[in-house]
């Protein structure tokens, strides 16, 4: 979706403000919100693409007014409420008002390190050869789905060069909707700054995105 999360090239956010000796967390609640989010994906059963969509799928003003872990919290609440794991009244009151769902797996302390070490690899065995090769010119498709995508606006319609080929990876656009992993070839596509930002762009800069095959077309396919 073309939401506030898609920030590449957007003007007006001001300078970057690094914080010297920044702590990992800035408040006790951030620690708990972080850990609850990691732990709840086990009983909740959602995937990372669903989590990202739950965080970003909200009005721009809401997204931009929330701090990072407030977004995580809002995303987590949404995922749980959608699955009837918890109700809005329970979150507001801090009291259990509905019966817990049975048969869900809980992340125990003994499972934590193994879960982190395993992570969530997204590479899958290819079922077809890659359509593009390193060095090929490609155009990024222009799409505007109302659902989750990892094709940022600032590269849509732009022509770039295939720089790396990463194998086949889970496709977020379908995985975020529970429509399956539908793995596709994943490429790194690089663009001259001038292709993205016009003739006045820094001539020494190049930008790349990682793009699934269905985001790409041959430059000759469409004017």
């Amino acid at each position: 979706m073309d939401g506030a999360q898609d920030m590449g090239g957007v003007e007006g956010f001001g300078p970057v403000q690094p914080e010297p000796n920044e702590p990992v967390f800035h408040a006790a609640w951030e620690r708990r919100a972080f850990a609850l989010t990691l732990a709840m994906s086990r009983p909740g059963g959602w995937n990372i693409d669903m989590s990202r969509f739950a965080r970003e799928n909200r009005p721009h003003a809401d997204y931009l007014s929330k701090s990072y872990y407030q977004l995580w919290l809002a995303g987590l609440e949404r995922l749980m409420i959608e699955r009837d794991l918890v109700s809005e009244d329970e979150i507001a009151s801090g009291r259990v008002l509905t019966v817990a769902k049975a048969g869900l797996k809980t992340l125990s302390r003994d499972d934590v390190m193994a879960m982190l070490h395993r992570g969530g690899p997204t590479e899958r065995d290819p079922t077809a050869p890659a359509r593009f090769a390193i060095g090929d010119q490609v155009r990024m498709k222009t799409i505007n789905p109302p659902t989750h995508t990892r094709l940022p606006r600032y590269v849509r319609g732009r022509v770039g060069t295939i720089e790396l080929l990463h194998g086949c990876h889970v496709f977020p656009d379908t995985n975020s909707l529970g429509q399956g992993e539908k793995p596709q070839w994943l490429y790194t596509v690089s663009f001259a700054g001038t292709e993205l930002w016009g003739a006045d762009a820094d001539p020494t800069m190049k930008v790349s995105v990682d793009a699934w095959e269905s985001y790409l077309e041959s430059p000759s396919e469409r004017a």
Binding site: F25, A27, A28, W29, R31, R32, A33, F34, A35, L36, L38, A39, M40, P43, Q70, L73, E77, L85, V86, E90, I91, A92, S93, G94, R95, V96, A100, K101, L104, T106, L107, S108, R109, D111, V112, M113, L116
Partner: peptide
């Protein structure tokens, strides 16, 4: 927000969805 997170953790723990000791280890890590 702090109150909301606390409430949430209480509810999720009582429902058996999360183990607070696992949360502690995630944070410590």
């Amino acid at each position: 927000t702090e109150l909301r997170v606390r409430a949430l953790e209480t509810v999720l723990t009582e429902k058996g969805y999360v183990d607070p000791a696992a949360l502690d280890l995630l944070i410590e890590t």
